[in-house]
Amino acid sequence: MSKTEWLKIRLEPEEKEGFQQAADIAGASLSSWMRERLRRAAVRELEDASRPVPFIRINRR
């Protein structure tokens, strides 16, 4: 899957620093760390609302 979209968010400096520290601990770039955490949160929210998750593909054989 090719990443072609950008998401711009505004953060407090302390938030960004905390996110960066967490990404460093995980051994991930800040972008990768944030994307993975957003994906997890979206899956929870959508599944709780019985909605499909657009970025999860179900393999059909």
Rank of each mutant, 00 (worst) to 15 (best):
M1V: 09
M1H: 10
S2W: 13
K3G: 11
T4F: 09
T4Q: 09
E5H: 15
W6Y: 14
L7Q: 12
L7R: 12
L7E: 11
L7K: 12
L7D: 08
R10L: 12
L11I: 08
L11N: 08
P13K: 04
P13C: 04
P13A: 08
E14R: 05
E15R: 08
K16C: 05
K16V: 09
E17G: 06
E17P: 06
G18C: 07
Q20D: 08
Q20S: 08
Q21F: 09
Q21K: 11
A22V: 05
D24N: 09
D24G: 09
I25A: 15
A26Q: 06
G27F: 06
G27Q: 09
A28Y: 11
S29V: 02
S31F: 05
S32A: 13
S32Y: 06
W33D: 03
W33E: 04
R35C: 06
E36Y: 10
E36C: 10
L38V: 12
A41Y: 10
A42N: 02
V43W: 01
R44V: 00
L46C: 00
L46K: 00
E47P: 01
E47L: 04
E47S: 06
S50D: 04
S50H: 08
R51K: 09
V53K: 00
V53L: 01
P54E: 02
P54L: 00
F55Q: 00
R57Q: 06
I58L: 13
I58W: 09
N59L: 15
N59R: 15
R60S: 14
